[in-house]
Amino acid sequence: MAWDYTEKLKDHFFNPRNVLKESEESYNADGVGEVGNIKCGDMMRFYIKVEEKDGKDIIKDCKWKTYGCASAIGSTSVLSEMVTGMPIEEAVKVTPKDIVAVLGGIPEQKFHCSVLGDKALRAAIENYYETHGKADKIFWKRREIICSCLDVDRAEIESLFYNDNVKTFEELQDKTKLGTSCGACIEKAKALLKELNESTSCSIVEEK
């Protein structure tokens, strides 16, 4: 393999777990979430079945479908194993870093574009809460997606801006790879950065 994929990732790519083989209707998930799109080269849909146990929502079973490269497929498969049996309140906290840790690493270039499973899972959980009269349980900030290809949201950009001193579009792109796929979000991201820059007392950074 040209990419330095770990044995664990290869195993999950060649023998993916929990792929949805039946129709969506027959699986009848309690929550479905989707991220990415075909133009970007990665897109996944995550399906969860939830069971209430001792007042807790537990992911009893989950399935997924992924369009993407070997690492997108392998990382989604690993995630599906990680969260099966996990209480939702823990599952929403799973980050790409957690998935990569279980995989034993992933080529750095592929981190941003192929590890999208946690976002698809969170979207499925939101969908579950919304469709089961539990929208009030969505304690995390609802996401405002800026780059749908690489699934970068407003919160992530704000955090980079405030915590990591990411002030210019070039820096932002370097950190997140935002706008490197279809490019549709570039203006939106620049506008957000401008807004953030203007809202702070620091001098406005010129757009390059």
Binding site: F13, F14, Y67, C69, A70, A72
Partner: peptide, 14 residues
């Protein structure tokens, strides 16, 4: 249609 080339490549290589 509907699938991605790197995944095809690695399955073929396998």
């Amino acid at each position: 249609d509907l699938i991605e080339g790197e995944a095809i490549l690695y399955l073929l290589d396998h």
